[in-house]
Design a protein around this nucleic acid. Structure first.
Lengths: 140, 140
DNA sequence: TATTGTTATACTCTATAACTATA
DNA sequence: TATAGTTATAGAGTATAACAATA
């Protein structure tokens, strides 16, 4: 009969710890907004649909999130000329600056949350998580 | 300027993938109930307060969660004779059985979510996560 | 007076369904 | 008819404050 706290349970707990440790005040934005801008920083312009799927957001949720981000001036949406039903999302210079500041803040938060691990161990952790995520069906 | 998806962002994404992949139907209980029973399986009887702190649950949230778990017959609460303000929580045989079935289900889910990693790599991941979690301030 | 647990309440996040426009 | 995005609405999860019982 298994009993040790499983790997997935640990992932859930650590995620909760990150949510608790992060605040809008610290990042200058909400955590979910940060994740969107991080995505856009790597792939911009990007189709709204791809963004939603990769970040595992409901279509509805995605719209509301992008509304706020666009209102903050961090990204812009425009119609795809090839298929006017689609939206193309692109990060703005202001968005990159906000993202940069948030990343600095998140680095210090990472020191806090992963303080028990050495630099090498954090690299290992990151590599393992990255490969696990790449295999997720929802991710494009 | 940093740009790679950070380790913490990966933790958040993987956590979301776990939430998405798990269902009450699959586990026979809710994910949050599973986490409580897992805790109790290791430390039972346990003070309600300790349980709340370790699982990073609000006092309120903890009460509601334990209400449901107790109603399902998976755990019991009783007053602490030494301090009648406190509650002692103890898992029941029925709770252990339900936990066991859920763990079996979660194992297959782990295969799904961590399918990209070898057994050794999963052990490494579990070790790193476990040590990171042990260092969290909220955890008793 | 301080603490543990509970209740009441509201807020955030997420999910479902119906609607608009484009194809 | 089908799809991308939006809107409206409800549900789940979480947080805040007031309360009761006990110390």
């Amino acid at each position: 009969m298994p009993n040790r706290p499983g790997t997935l349970a640990l992932v859930l707990h650590l995620s909760k710890a990150v949510h608790r440790a992060s605040s809008e005040e610290l990042l200058g934005m909400r955590l979910r907004q940060f994740l969107v801008l991080s995505y856009l920083h790597e792939r911009s312009p990007s189709r709204q649909q791809d963004l939603c799927e990769t970040l595992m957001l409901d279509a509805n949720n995605c719209v509301l999130l992008l509304n706020d981000i666009e209102a903050a001036g961090w990204a812009e949406r425009r119609r795809d000329p090839d298929d006017r039903r689609r939206h193309i999302v692109e990060i703005t210079d202001s968005g990159r600056e906000a993202l940069f500041r948030a990343e600095i803040a998140l680095d210090s938060l990472e020191d806090e949350v992963l303080g028990a691990l050495s630099a090498d161990e954090r690299d290992t952790l990151r590599d393992l998580l990255s490969r696990a995520m790449a295999d997720q069906p929802a991710v494009v």
